[in-house]
C-alpha cells in the first residue's frame, strides 16, 4: 500500500461543490497552506469546487489560506469558534454583506463534535454554553445536579491537513502546536488529505511516536518546504 499522490493538484482533485471541508490549523499554526492554495487554483481555473462549508477554528487571516478561499468566493459557510484575527477583512466583509454563513461553536465543543464524529458518537452532553445564547434551541439535561447541552457530531466529506512526517501508510506526526485539530479531523472526514514536510518509508516513524495512525489517512503529498501562514501574513503576502 502506498497513499502517496504525486502533486497537490492530484491531492485536491476529488473535492467537489458543496462539500464540507475540514481544514487543520489554529490560526497559522498547522494551516495546510499549499493544499488550500491548490484548491483555490482549481477553483480559479474551473469554477469548482464552490459553495464549500469550511470547518476551522478561525475564518482566515489576511489574504492567504482560508481568507483567500473566502475572497475567491468558494466558501458558502464557515463553522468555527473565532472568526476574528489580526486581519479578518475577508470573512468580515462577506459576513456583514450576508454573502457567507456562520455557525459559531465554542472551541471545546467544536473539538469534541469533530472527535465524536471520528469515534462514531452521534451526540454528547457538555456544560459549555449552557444558559447562553449559543445553546438556544438545543436539548439540555441535568446529570448529578448540573446542567448540560446536547451537541451533535460534526462530520466532513474531506479534511485537508498539514503534518510534519508521514510514512507511505499515512501514519503522521505533527510539529509543535501545529497538531491542534488535525488528529480529530483526520478521523472525522470521509477522505483525509495530508501535506507532509517529509514522506518516509513504513518503519521509519517509531510506532511509539505516531500521533495519527494511517487508518485515518487517505492521501499524502510531500511539500518539503511548507509555508507558514503567520510568517506569510507578517510578510504581507496576498494569494490572488
Amino acid at each position: 500500500m502506498d497513499k502517496t499522490v504525486p502533486d497537490l493538484a492530484t491531492a485536491v482533485a476529488g473535492i467537489e461543490d458543496g462539500m464540507v471541508v475540514m481544514v487543520g490549523g489554529f490560526g497559522g499554526s498547522g494551516a495546510p497552506i499549499e493544499l488550500i492554495h491548490a484548491l483555490i487554483d482549481r477553483f480559479k481555473a474551473t469554477g469548482s469546487p464552490k459553495n464549500l462549508t469550511v470547518v476551522n477554528n478561525n475564518a482566515g487571516n489576511g489574504r492567504i489560506g482560508i481568507a483567500a478561499m473566502i475572497d475567491a468566493g468558494m466558501v458558502g459557510k464557515m463553522i468555527c469558534s473565532f472568526p476574528r484575527s489580526a486581519d479578518p477583512r475577508a470573512f468580515t466583509e462577506k459576513y456583514l454583506a450576508g454573502e457567507i454563513g456562520l455557525e459559531l461553536v465554542p472551541q471545546g465543543t467544536l473539538a469534541e463534535r469533530i472527535r465524536a464524529a471520528g469515534a462514531g458518537i452521534p451526540a454528547f452532553y457538555t456544560p459549555a454554553s449552557y444558559g447562553t445564547d449559543v445553546a438556544k434551541g438545543k436539548p439540555v439535561a441535568e446529570f448529578d445536579g448540573k446542567h448540560y447541552v446536547q451537541e451533535r457530531w460534526l462530520k466532513a466529506d474531506v479534511a485537508i491537513l498539514k503534518a510534519e512526517l508521514a510514512d507511505t501508510l499515512g501514519n503522521l506526526t505533527y510539529r509543535k502546536a501545529a497538531r491542534n485539530f488535525s488528529p480529530l479531523m483526520a478521523a472525522a472526514a470521509a477522505k483525509t488529505i495530508v501535506q507532509a514536510t517529509k514522506i518516509v518509508q513504513p518503519g521509519e516513524i517509531d510506532p511509539e511516536h505516531v500521533v495519527t495512525p494511517g487508518i485515518f489517512v487517505d492521501a499524502i503529498v510531500e511539500v518539503s518546504d511548507p509555508k507558514q501562514e503567520e510568517a506569510l501574513m507578517r510578510a504581507g503576502v496576498a494569494y490572488a
Partner: peptide
C-alpha cells in the same frame, strides 16, 4: 459585528 466566542464558554466550566 461578527460574533466570536473561542474557548471562553468551555473555560468557565
Amino acid at each position: 459585528g461578527v460574533p466570536a466566542v473561542g474557548g471562553a464558554m468551555d473555560l468557565v466550566h
